[in-house]
Simulated assay, not measured.
Amino acid sequence: MKPSGDAVHSSRFGRLRRVISRSPVGRGWRRSSDLELWSLALGFAALGLLTLVPLLITVAAADPERGWGFAEWLGEGLGVSIASRAEVGQLFTRPAEVLRTTTAFGIATLAVFGLSFGAAVQGGYEKIWGLPPARWRARWRHVVWLGVLTGYLLLSGTATLRREPLGGGAVASLSALLFLWWSQRLLLGGRIRWRALFPGAVATVIGLLGLRIFSGLVFSPLIASSAVSYGPIGTVLVIQSWLVGVGVVVFGGAMVGRLLHEELPRMKHALNQRRGDRRDRGRG
């Protein structure tokens, strides 16, 4: 008896599903599910809103002559239109007013959330690489990372990068690559080699560039419509959604980097084996 059409279709679908499951894409999907990538991104966005927003406002106010206001910096990072940047600008204090209203309690709160943010990023990297949590003595790494992050954001907000869009874009991408590469090395306590961490830094930078393009297409009109429908809180929700996307890119890029680090030697070995088999056939 001949198999029915449904049975043949089911068999082909099953083979295709097994092939995809055994492929690097399938292994990456299972790994992202095991790591709960979405939960990591949500935690990143929550702490990022409590840390990055006040930090960027303070950093912009520290250099009022050359630094951008936080609204301009965020609008540039989002890649949104001028009208949407105006909606973002209504949410934040002018840079000149920040230093006058900053209190010691605000700085202390920012430091606490900043260290918690560093711990969250470190925990995500440790899960991605399957490492045990670092000891409490390694908490100094969060302080160093937060300080370098502040300097990096200050550098990113200078007028020098703003006046040179082409050269500034290349410098911004290179500086982001170096910062992300170093961040993984520092927060993981040197337990992973530099060479193994480099693909993750590259994947994260590419993902951030893609997120910027996506933001210009989706978040720009969404900010305008949300501001009309919900007022300022609508803009905050869009920014929070963008931070979730940044979290997905940061941890997803590191996961893709580990996957590439593991899969490239396998692919190279398989390719060399196929070449060897062809040579043997040719000799035969």
Rank of each mutant, 00 (worst) to 15 (best):
A96N: 12
P265L: 14
R66V: 09
L222C: 10
L243V: 03
G169N: 14
H142R: 05
G28N: 10
R94M: 10
L149W: 04
S23Y: 06
P133D: 09
V218P: 02
L271S: 14
P265S: 13
S4W: 08
E36C: 03
W129H: 13
I223R: 02
L37C: 06
A224G: 07
A224P: 00
V236A: 03
Q273A: 15
A104T: 09
S4R: 11
D63Y: 03
E164F: 14
V98N: 05
L153H: 08
R22S: 14
A201I: 06
R163H: 14
G234Y: 04
G216E: 04
W181N: 04
L50S: 08
G43K: 05
L55E: 02
P221G: 12
E65G: 04
I57S: 04
R275W: 07
T51Q: 09
M255K: 08
L237D: 01
V59S: 00
A176H: 03
S183G: 06
L177C: 08
M255Y: 09
L208Y: 09
I233L: 03
V256L: 15
Q184Y: 03
S226D: 09
L187Q: 05
P133Q: 10
F113D: 01
Q240H: 09
S241K: 00
V19T: 12
D280K: 09
V112S: 07
L243A: 12
F92L: 11
G157W: 00
G189S: 05
A201W: 08
R94Q: 14
F214D: 00
S23M: 09
A176M: 09
S225F: 11
I213K: 02
I223K: 03
S23Q: 07
T150H: 00
R281F: 08
W136Y: 03
E97P: 12
V250E: 03
I206R: 00
R31V: 00
W145A: 07
S4T: 13
G26E: 04
R279L: 14
F105L: 15
S21E: 12
V171D: 01
R22H: 14
V249D: 04
L78T: 09
R258D: 06
F92M: 08
I233M: 01
R137M: 02
E65L: 12
L188F: 04
G207D: 07
G106S: 09
G75M: 07
V248R: 06
V25Y: 05
R278D: 07
I82K: 10
V144Y: 02
G151C: 08
I213E: 10
L177A: 11
K2S: 08
T235P: 01
D63A: 12
R100K: 11
V205I: 10
L178M: 04
V249M: 05
V25W: 10
Q240D: 05
R31D: 05
G79L: 03
W140M: 02
G114A: 06
G5P: 14
L180T: 05
E97N: 13
L217P: 02
H261S: 15
G189P: 02
V19Y: 06
T204V: 08
